[in-house]
Computed example of a mutant assay.
Amino acid sequence: MKVLLYFEGEKMLEKSGIGRAFDHQKKALESAGIEYTTDAKSKDYDILHINTYGLNTRKMIQQAKRQEKKVVYHAHSNAEDFKNSFIGSNAVTPLYKKYIVSLYSLGDHLITPTLYAKRILQSYGIQKPIDVVSNGINLAQFKPDAKKEQEFRAYFNLAAEQKVIISVGLYFYRKGIVDFVEIARRFPQYTFIWFGHISLYSVPKEIRKIVQYDHPDNVIFPGYIKGDIIEGAYSNADLFFFPSYEETEGIVVLEALASSQNVLVRDIPVYEGWLQDKQNCYMGHDNAEFSQLLEGIVEEKLPDLSKNGWQTAQTKSIQHIGTELKNVYEMVLS
C-alpha cells in the first residue's frame, strides 16, 4: 500500500492548522510503516489522500479516478469555520459551502477530525462514508523543557513574577481575538500574548485596528513564531486562553494540553467527547465567565487541571493517529 499525500498551496498554508495537520499526517504514516509520497506527479500509488481545495485539487482527483485509484478526502474545513474570517467571507459562504460539498463528494471516503465536524458534513447531505480521526499531536515536541521556557521569557523580557496568558491563531474574528483583547483590558496586571499571523489586508478593518494599535499595552502581537519560543510559551505561561467561536478540532488546544498547560476555551460543540469542563479544561460562555475563570486559574484559586489535560493529549498521539489512518486506508482498499 502506497499513499500520495496531496497538499495544494503548501507554502501559503504551512502556518495554518491545515499545514500542521499535513505535517502530522506524514509523521503518522511513518510511525505506522505506511509508504507515502508527496510528489503530485507520481503514478505509483494506491490511495490519493487529499487535504486542500484549490483548482488543481479537482484535477488531481479526476486524474486518480481515471487511473482507478481510491480517493480519501480529509475534510479540514466547512462553511461554519469559513464564516467570520477573511474580508467578505460571510457573503460568499453559501458559494464556499457548495464548492467544498462538490469536492468532498468526489472522494471515496472522508476523514474529519471530530464527531462535530462529521455531523456538519452529514447535515450538508454528503452520503460518502466518514471516519473521525484526530489531527493528532507530536507529544515529544511539546514536552515541557526548562531551556525553551527560559528562551520564551527572555524573548519577551518577562520578569520572573510576571503572569502571562497566551493564545495562538490567525487574526480572525471567529478565533475570539476581539474577546481576547477585551479580557486583557480587564487585567492590566497580566501580560497577554497572541501568537499567529495573516496578512492584515485580508481581514476586516475592525480586526486590523485591534492588531495594529487599538489594544492595551499589556497585549502583544508578535506574529508567527515557531520552535523553542512558542513551545516554551505553551508550557511556561500561566494559562492558554482560546475563546474561539468555531473549530473543526483546534490543533493549538492539543498543543497546549500536550504542554501540561491549563486550558480555558469557549464551550462550543467541537469539544464534545474529548474536552470536559472542570475535568481536563475550563469552559466559559461569555467574557464575564472568562474573566472569573481566568483570574481563578492564574491566581491558583481553582484546581490545576493540566495533568488531566496532558492525559487527554496522550490519546491523540502521532502513533495513535497512524494506526487509525492505516485502518481507514485498508478499509478503502478492501
Rank of each mutant, 00 (worst) to 15 (best):
K2H: 06
L4T: 14
F7L: 08
G9E: 11
E14V: 15
E14H: 12
G17Y: 13
A21W: 10
A28P: 01
L29Y: 04
S31K: 09
Y36S: 01
D39H: 09
D39C: 06
Y45D: 01
I47C: 05
Y53I: 14
L55V: 06
R58N: 02
M60E: 14
Q67G: 09
Y73K: 00
Y73P: 03
E80K: 12
K83D: 06
N84P: 07
T93C: 13
G107N: 10
L110K: 08
A117F: 03
Y124F: 14
G125T: 04
I126K: 03
Q127C: 04
N135K: 03
G136S: 10
F142Q: 00
F142N: 01
A146D: 11
A146W: 02
E149R: 08
A154H: 10
N157I: 00
Q162L: 01
V168T: 15
G169T: 05
Y171R: 00
Y173C: 01
R174P: 04
R174H: 07
G176D: 10
D179N: 10
I183W: 01
P188D: 04
Y190T: 03
W194L: 07
F195M: 00
G196R: 04
R208V: 03
V211A: 02
V219D: 07
G223T: 13
K226G: 09
I229R: 02
Y234H: 14
F242P: 08
E249H: 11
L254F: 15
N262T: 08
P269S: 06
E272C: 01
E272Q: 14
G273L: 05
W274I: 10
L275E: 11
D277W: 04
N280S: 00
N280R: 00
Y282W: 14
M283S: 02
E299N: 14
K301T: 02
K301R: 14
S306M: 05
A313L: 11
A313Q: 11
I318G: 04
H320D: 03
H320L: 02
E330F: 06
